[in-house]
């Protein structure tokens, strides 16, 4: 730790620095940061309550009286297609994240706990996927799905998002940190098969890590725009991101549609923010080390 050794020679003026040289400054900086991040979210929540007339006339943060009519309008829009977008998003993100977590967990576990020829190669290939730009994949994926008649189906959005390099990376780190090799050895001596060891010994210990992987992938799929944008043509299969985009593309020149877009945006935030706040303790980002505390 070179950084520490350089500090073993105290410099003359160092004493002058007090223990609390910044006073209220750190808090102030963080509060300013929080105001900046909450500002547009607060705005969209307030704006969604305004009627068409109020949106352009009342002060920015003055609540309006149009929330109910905005919601009614949104749900009436093209026979309630917004509901369908919401439902589709839940299917894509929920289904994709469950499958992705399963594949990531068993892959990360295997890469962490077995020594076998080709392990490093397989790991590097799987992790290397993080570096491949999404468009390099999305366009040929679309063409290949078209070949087999699966473009513009739920599968076209679901299947390509199961393999999740970052999830495999996390699962490997969690396994290294959470499961002692001796425990598996003891299980083997007791005659447990490898699948049973994974199911009954490893999985329960990996559950907190799996929730983290699930959340990351759920958010990634929920927020994805490029893949469904390329894959889907039928707006009954759109997720919210593509749906909101088409809503904007249709309504950007018609200020009378702004209420609809704003209300839709507000509603698209609610499920994720709720998930985000209730699952606080699982949002771990120890990218570079095995510092997993449960």
């Amino acid at each position: 730790m070179t950084a520490v050794t350089t500090l073993t020679r105290p410099e003359g003026h160092a004493r002058a620095a007090t223990r609390r040289p910044f006073g209220i400054a750190p808090t102030a900086v963080l509060v300013l940061g929080a105001i900046y991040t909450l500002f547009p979210v607060g705005w969209v929540v307030v704006a969604a309550t305004k009627s068409k007339a109020e949106l352009f006339s009342t002060p920015t943060f003055a609540p309006g009286t149009g929330l109910l009519s905005n919601l009614t309008d949104l749900f009436a829009y093209r026979d309630g297609v917004f509901w369908l977008w919401l439902l589709n998003t839940v299917v894509y993100a929920g289904g994709g994240a469950v499958l992705s977590t399963a594949v990531s967990t068993i892959s990360g576990y295997t890469l962490a706990k077995y020594a076998f020829p080709g392990r490093d190669l397989i790991f590097n290939l799987l992790i290397g996927g993080i570096l491949v730009p999404s468009v390099v994949l999305a366009i040929p994926q679309y063409l290949l799905f078209s070949e087999i008649g699966l473009a513009d189906t739920y599968w076209a959005v679901l299947l390509p998002q199961i393999l999740h390099p970052y999830g495999i990376y996390l699962a490997r780190i969690y396994t290294q940190a959470a499961i002692p090799g001796s425990l598996l050895e003891a299980g083997r001596l007791d005659g447990a098969g490898e699948w049973r060891l994974f199911r009954q010994v490893a999985l329960p210990m990996l559950t907190p890590g799996m929730v983290t992987i699930f959340l990351f992938q759920f958010v990634a799929i929920w927020n994805n725009f490029l893949l469904p944008f390329i894959m889907l043509g039928d707006d009954h299969k759109f997720p919210l991101t593509v749906g909101l985009y088409t809503l904007l593309a249709a309504g950007a020149n018609q200020p009378s549609l702004y209420n609809l877009i704003i209300t839709g945006t507000m509603l698209s935030l609610v499920p994720l923010i709720a998930l985000f706040l209730t699952m606080q303790r699982y949002w771990r980002t120890d990218l570079s080390g095995g510092a997993v505390k449960s």
């Binding site: 808090t27 963080l30 509060v31 940061g33 929080a34 991040t37 909450l38 547009p40 979210v41 705005w43 969209v44 704006a47 958010v219 929920w222 927020n223 725009f225 919210l240 991101t241 593509v242 909101l244 985009y245 904007l248 702004y258 877009i261 704003i262 945006t265 698209s268 935030l269 994720l272 923010i273 998930l275 985000f276 706040l277 606080q280 949002w283």
Partner: peptide
Amino acid sequence: FTRISIFLPYAVPGVAATLMWGFL
């Protein structure tokens, strides 16, 4: 409070973030 607030946009889709700022 500030940590959670500043992390919050992570849960906001890029399309929604762009729409919010775009209107602003």
